[in-house]
Every structure is written in structure tokens, then in C-alpha cells.
Simulated scan of single mutants.
Amino acid sequence: MSNAPHFDIDVASFWTDPYPALARMRKEAPIAFVPQLGSTVFTRRDDIFSQEKRIDVFSSHQPAGLMNTLMGHNMMRKDGEAHMAERAAMFPSVSPRTVRDTWSRQFQAHADRILDELAPAGRADLCKAFALPLSAECLKDVTGLTNMRFADMDAWSQAMIDGIANYTGNKQVEARCHAATAGIDAAIDDMIPMVTRHPNTSILSVLLAAGMPMSSIRANIKLAISGGQNEPRDAIAGTVWALLTHPEQLALVREGKGEGKGDGKPTWLDVFEEYARWIAPIGMSPRRVAKHWSYGGVDFEPDDRVFFMFGSANRDEACFANPDDFDVTRDTRKSIAFGAGPHYCAGAFASRAMVADVALPSVFARLKGLRLDESEPVRIGGWAFRGLLNLPVRWDVS
């Protein structure tokens, strides 16, 4: 175990709002052992930015880790050449060109269809009625599992997310995760003959064409589902909520015609990037210490567990002025919401397109007078993965 100073947290309070405790850690113990999490956590942005790249020390390869044991050995839990080989095999399905030429058009078609059905209602929980089905329908296309129901895509993604964040060992959470992975395996088996006969740009199709072992294909599709559903879903709902609770920021983006990145004329992409900084959907990335190492006055021992707290890094006072404020004119280039090293999110281009190019402009264009439904409070939670649990809204129906 590392000799990092101990920092105790209340787990329930940390799930509800981790930012006060993270701010204290950044100030008092930026590298600290948190007994309740059984891990040494990094909380400052520059420490995480530099050390995440040290894969010789802070390894993603975690044979006994929850992701490996529950979902299979995917590229996120590999380093070096093994990681890059699988990342390269997947790249044709999520490259900027594929997103531009194929997925963006399909994403927009899904958004238009969902909003056509939703608009006459005048009120909804936008998490369940828009963010969830849009993210799931888009992910069905990208993964190639178009035989799934969007509700299953979301439920199975959440079950895996809960499973790999189940550091307290809850058996019911583990059982739901196993049921989800079994369902995904069955969906993969069902689609293999179709994409073999009719190849496309989906992850399943390109990985089969690359000759990747079936166990790795299954593991990497589960990886894509675990992150590719809940993160865009939470970002869509969360960003809409952030704009509705900061109307002056919404006015800026509606008026903005600039290039973005801090020019005072924000784009929808600036809005998305700022939300992902302010409330990072992926709040943490785990690592295993591979060798003896000293950094920041802390000695690390092999097999220590380390958490890089992206949610804390993105509110680091040393890098962002007034970091607790949601400010769409902010220069977010120091944000590490998508990671910083070789494990930078492979789906980042698709996520930006889904949220910034399609979801946000479509929602605010189609749902006139969009506003929070004050009859029900908005709930938000999580620290390893953080997002809205509901988003009750109303809009004008002509």
C-alpha cells in the first residue's frame, strides 16, 4: 500500500456531490489514500495529465479488476502494442470521416423521429424520453447490434456501469451485470451472420473483418456499450439542464456565431465541452501500479490501486478560473473529460457529433419555450460515473 496521507469520505455524500471533498483533497492532500474506496486517488489536473501517460507505472492491465472479470479483457484494460492494435482495428468505425459521412446523418434521423413523436406532448422527463432513446438508437447503429431494443441497450449499459463501479461488492449489482453481458453476447451471436453477409462500418463488422478473436470482439463491444450509452445520454440531459438553469449561457450560444474556444461567441460544441468539464460523465479512471514508483512525495508499491479523478481534475483551481461555474465562453482546452493519454476516448468524435451537432441544436430548435417542470426536482448522482437521474421539462405546444 502507498504511504499517501489518508483522507476519509462519507460514501453516500460523495455519491450525491463529490466536489466539496475533491476540492479539499486538491488543497490538503492532492494524492491521498481513501479507505472507503480502497484506493489512492489523484485529484489535481496536471498530476493526472502527466502520470496517466506513464503506462509503465500506472497500468491499465488489471487482471483481477472488475471490468476484466465482468466484461472480458477489452482494449481499455490493455497497454502498449496490445491496446493500440485493438484500437486501430476499431478506428474505422469511429473515425472522424466515418462519423461525418455515415453516423451524423443517422444520428440526426433518430433525433428527428424521436422529437416528432415527443413534441406534441408538451412535457416529459427528457432523460427517459429523449436522451436515453437517442443515445441508444445511435449506439445500436455504431455497434452493429440493431437487433436490440433501445431500452435493453440502456439497461444493459447501466448494469455494466454499475457492475464495474461496484467496489463495495454488492451481489445484486454483480448479478445484474452478468445478466446484461449474457444478453449482449446473445445479440452479438444473432447479428454475426448478417454483418458477415452485408459488411458495414459498425464496430462488430469492422472487428470481424480485422480477424480479431471472438473473445476480444465481445469484450470491446461491451466496452463500447458501457461507455457509449450512458456518457452521451448523461451529457445530453445534463447539458440541457445546465442551459435551462443558466439562461444567460443559453442566450450566449443562441446568439453566438463565432469560432468558439473562448472567443466570447460560443458554439454548441463549446457548450458540450464545458459541460463535460463541469460535470464529467466519466469521473474516474482506475489504474494498477506496475512497479515501485515515487511521485509527489508518495511511494507507490506494485499492485496498489490508483484512481485518476477526472471530475476533480476538471475543476482544478490551478487550471480553471472559478471552476465550479458553468461558463460556455470558457477555454476548455485543459479539460481531460475524455482522458489524457493513450487511452483517450476512442468514441470522442461520435460523442461530440451526437451531442453537439445533433441533440442540443435539435432539442432547442424543436421544443419551443423549453423550461424545467418545477413540480418535480431534478436529481443527479454518482462520482465514478455522474449524471442526471431525471429531467422533468415542459414546452409550448402550438
Rank of each mutant, 00 (worst) to 15 (best):
L391K: 13
E137K: 10
A32W: 02
S226A: 15
G381D: 10
A151C: 08
V142W: 01
E137G: 01
M214E: 15
G296R: 09
R105S: 14
D357A: 11
M25P: 01
G65Q: 04
K222V: 03
L134I: 04
F300G: 03
E259K: 07
A350H: 08
R176E: 13
Y167R: 12
R45Y: 01
D101H: 06
S135E: 08
S39P: 06
W15E: 14
R100M: 12
V393G: 00
E52F: 12
E81C: 02
V41H: 05
Y344G: 00
W383R: 01
R315Q: 06
R87H: 08
G258Y: 02
N200P: 12
A124E: 06
V206G: 04
P266F: 01
D357S: 11
F338C: 02
G296V: 12
S39G: 09
G183P: 01
D325C: 13
T40A: 00
M284V: 14
T245W: 07
C127N: 09
A219C: 10
M67N: 03
H198W: 10
C345A: 00
D154E: 10
G183V: 11
P199M: 00
Q62D: 13
P30W: 00
V11Q: 11
I31P: 00
V195N: 11
P213V: 01
M148W: 04
V195C: 03
E255S: 11
L208Q: 14
L391W: 09
A119N: 05
D327Y: 10
A209H: 03
D185P: 06
L22E: 02
D17T: 09
L250Q: 13
V253F: 07
A321R: 12
T143R: 04
G283N: 10
R197S: 14
E248G: 15
P18G: 04
G238P: 07
V397I: 07
D101F: 12
A276P: 09
I236E: 07
L204Y: 04
A89P: 07
N230Q: 12
P92D: 08
D125H: 08
W383E: 02
D270G: 03
R54G: 05
D162P: 05
N3R: 07
R24L: 06
A124Q: 05
K334T: 14
D270S: 04
I55R: 10
S95M: 11
K171Y: 04
F326T: 02
K53Y: 13
F7K: 00
D324C: 03
T201W: 13
F130V: 03
M214N: 13
P323R: 03
W395E: 00
S335M: 08
D324P: 00
H61K: 11
N74M: 03
A136H: 02
A384M: 15
G262L: 10
Q172N: 13
E117I: 02
P92C: 06
E174I: 03
M354P: 02
L372A: 02
N390K: 11
T102N: 10
M191K: 14
P199K: 00
M194C: 11
A353I: 02
I217G: 05
